[in-house]
Computed example of a mutant assay.
Amino acid sequence: MTATTPAPPGHVVAGAVVRDGRVLLAQRTRPAELAGLWELPGGKAEPGESIEAALVRELREELGVEVRGAERIGPAVPLAGGRELCAYLVELVSGVPRPLDHAALRWVDADELDSVDLVPADRAWIPDLREHLRR
């Protein structure tokens, strides 16, 4: 599956915005059981929407930025209801990230990944993110 093919039904995308050896994390405000935890920003792909288009739309809505690309990183994470969460490296094209749908934003480097209180699903990507950040 490429970034331009339609995402499978129930596909959830997470965007790894990387800059200067750091990845951008967003602090959740909801649901209550995840509030305060950190994640890669993103959301559900709309029916017929490509993976890249879903990332562009979600990161525009959540961060107020423009991104491009969708290079898959790490394993797919199964979610309830048969959905699947996948992380993708994206390039920040324009804008300054703002927490439009989150409590806060934070840039972290490879050494900080283990100390951040990530949502459980995003922990699956730590090894791959660390490797990418150290390149």
Rank of each mutant, 00 (worst) to 15 (best):
G82F: 09
E46D: 07
A45G: 07
A87F: 07
E61N: 07
P47L: 03
A54S: 04
E66D: 11
G48K: 04
L113Y: 09
D117S: 15
D111W: 12
I73L: 14
S115M: 08
C86I: 11
V93H: 07
V77W: 05
V56C: 04
V116H: 09
D101R: 12
P47C: 05
L85P: 14
K44Y: 13
L113H: 10
R83H: 15
A76S: 15
V108D: 11
V96R: 15
E61I: 06
S50I: 02
L40I: 08
V93M: 03
L85D: 02
G95V: 13
P99K: 13
L92I: 11
L92W: 00
L55F: 06
R98T: 07
L55M: 05
S115R: 13
G81C: 08
A53S: 09
A54D: 05
L113D: 11
G74F: 04
G64F: 12
P99G: 13
R83V: 03
E84K: 03
R83T: 06
A45K: 04
L59A: 08
P78I: 03
V67W: 01
G81E: 12
G69I: 07
V65T: 03
E91V: 10
E112Y: 01
P97Q: 13
R60Q: 08
V108I: 13
R60Y: 11
I51D: 00
E39D: 08
D109N: 15
D101V: 14
P99N: 12
V90M: 11
A80V: 11
G64I: 12
L63F: 10
A103K: 11
V65Y: 00
P97Y: 15
L40V: 05
A53G: 14
L113V: 14
P78S: 07
V108E: 13
P75D: 10
R83W: 03
D117A: 15
A76C: 06
E52T: 06
L89M: 15
E49K: 06
P41H: 03
R83Y: 01
L55W: 11
C86E: 15
G95N: 04
C86T: 10
A70T: 08
Y88E: 07
L59Y: 03
D101P: 02
E52S: 00
W107N: 06
A76I: 13
V116S: 10
R83F: 06
Y88N: 12
I51T: 05
D109V: 15
L100T: 04
D117V: 15
